[in-house]
Nucleic acid binder design. Structure first.
Lengths: 144, 144
DNA sequence: ACTATTTATTTGATATATCAAATAAATTAT
DNA sequence: ATAATTTATTTGATATATCAAATAAATAGT
């Protein structure tokens, strides 16, 4: 049985695609804001949309491990985008609130991210995108 | 303009798919070999197939940064899978050679990886896989 | 009320990702 | 032959991924 090189397997096209997108997206964000990452920006934006989200919920939406989310938030706090205090009603949870700097930054990066996504999908029809999504979700379910 | 949550965007289906696959693959490998990762195993297998590959070439095939490849090799050496010596003809390069332990492990993990890939793509037709690949490569080129 | 269980977050350890800079050998230009 | 450039690898710094274990608050069961 011949072993097939990663770069000839569709699974690694998946990997290449997400890596390419992330690199592209990160570069475009950092052209304008130099101390934030794509993941950090996404978290901020989600939180602005629904400030009641807790870290577990954020983790789920972002496909992150809880530990990873904790550390992304650590950095957002450290860089003054976010503050973290104990939740009033539930001592286990943390209340996250976006600082003025965070709000400003969201305004800046939101259109950049929207544009990145648009550019990445340029030339793909609505049906193609749906097909792509369906096939990928099939793979996800095969791996679970 | 409404911001769309990551989990509703096809780009994040790509991310979810590769994360799911990697987690699945890693779990299956570590059921049998407990001190090797998928990336390390892939590198070993590639190197066995073509022992003359240098780190830059390996990096390219694996879609890794050179620095990442250096560190993956560091661990393979540390764990006794590989040895690294200066290349005879070119003092900048390193000659990588697979140890007996490495050879044994390759024998074990190769079928596991092949099976992981097969399982991940279960139920996708040849045409669907080709479509998937084509669309992903379109995204890659859009991001470059 | 007390104990056991569950839920939310954090911490530690290790692997990988990414960029920039450093090192050093090989090659090219003059 | 020497200097400038290119090529191959490494190192440092920081961010993220993943698993396991720790912490601590909330809830359920008795």
């Amino acid at each position: 049985m011949e072993f097939i090189s990663p770069n000839k397997i569709v699974i690694y096209s998946i990997e290449l695609a997400i890596k390419s997108y992330r690199k592209f997206a990160q570069k475009n964000i950092q052209r304008t804001v130099d101390d934030i990452t794509l993941d950090q920006a996404l978290l901020l934006i989600l939180l602005q949309k629904d400030p009641s989200l807790n870290q577990m919920q954020l983790s789920k939406i972002l496909f992150k491990d809880y530990a990873a989310t904790t550390r992304i938030i650590d950095l957002l706090v450290k860089n003054g985008y976010l503050s973290r205090t104990v939740h009033q009603k539930d001592g286990r949870r943390k209340a996250l609130s976006i600082s003025p700097k965070g709000t400003e930054t969201i305004k800046t990066v939101k259109p950049i991210i929207a544009n990145n996504r648009k550019t990445a999908l340029d030339g793909l029809s609505k049906e193609e995108i749906e097909t792509l999504d369906r096939l990928l979700k099939k793979i996800v379910s095969n791996c679970n």
